[in-house]
């Protein structure tokens, strides 16, 4: 446990000790700012929401989240520090979990910077704080799942760019794919896609509807990818 926390702390600290953390946050805020300007027209009499901009958030996250997690394992491979990790008395699961928690902590910090928009709304209007809260819970959950996928792609390659692009493509197609595929399939597959549709789940949350189904869905998906990551890291020993 101590080791997992140590890895998490180191991961979080190194995001802020190197430019990468600041670049990711700046990029995130820039894209979000542009989206808010383009999609939201705040007019008197209209409800004070950011539903349009925040509804597109999963697409931003599909590119931003992999940038957070791309270095987690790739950099360890590239610098050879993985050798120090794998010969320390910690399990591969502890290593992966520590990396995941560290990235999740950074993600939470990054997400917190976007709270400036609800706060601005509070200054000029009266937003629905219940919906804001459930939107953020939804964003946190979707982020954890995206992080797990990104760490998974990071475990394959010592090249961060490859890890980033692979994860972005996977996540973007995951976010869009649900909509596109669901029209072309039927029966069991249709049901499966509807249930696992990340965007649908997120839209629910953005409306203030927060269900256990979403929690289980995101939790299970994140768990699955973390498990796969542990297996990939383990398998490197045998090569």
């Amino acid at each position: 446990m101590r080791a997992t926390i140590a890895i998490m702390q180191r991961e979080l600290l190194s995001m802020f000790c190197t430019p990468i953390g600041y670049v990711v946050i700046a990029g995130f805020l820039l894209i979000l700012g542009v989206l808010v300007i383009l999609t939201e027209g705040f007019e008197p009499g209209q409800p004070a929401t950011l539903r349009n901009a925040f509804g597109l958030m999963p697409f931003i996250l599909a590119f931003v989240v992999p940038a957070i997690a791309m270095r987690t394992l790739s950099e360890e491979y590239r610098n050879g520090t993985i050798e120090g990790m794998m010969t320390a008395p910690i399990s591969d699961a502890q290593l992966v979990l520590g990396k995941f928690l560290g990235s999740a902590a950074f993600y939470a910090v990054m997400l917190a910077t976007s709270l400036i928009y609800p706060i601005l709304m509070q200054v000029y209007g009266s937003p629905d704080w219940g919906a804001v809260f459930s939107t953020y819970v939804g964003l946190m959950l979707i982020g954890l799942f995206f992080l797990a996928v990104s760490i998974f792609t990071s475990s394959f390659s010592s090249n961060q760019i490859i890890a980033w692009i692979t994860a972005s493509v996977l996540l973007a197609s995951f976010a869009v794919g649900g909509f596109l595929l669901v029209r072309h399939v039927g029966g069991f597959w249709r049901q499966l896609i509807q249930r696992a549709n990340v965007m649908g789940r997120f839209e629910e949350a953005a409306l203030g509807l927060f269900t256990t189904g979403s929690l289980v869905c995101f939790g299970a998906l994140a768990g699955l990818f973390l498990f796969l990551t542990i297996k990939v890291v383990e398998s490197r020993r045998w090569r």
Binding site: S14, C17, T18, T81, I82, G84, M85
Partner: peptide
Amino acid sequence: PETVPLYPE
């Protein structure tokens, strides 16, 4: 190890 595993930051 041969390449000393250090975190430069």
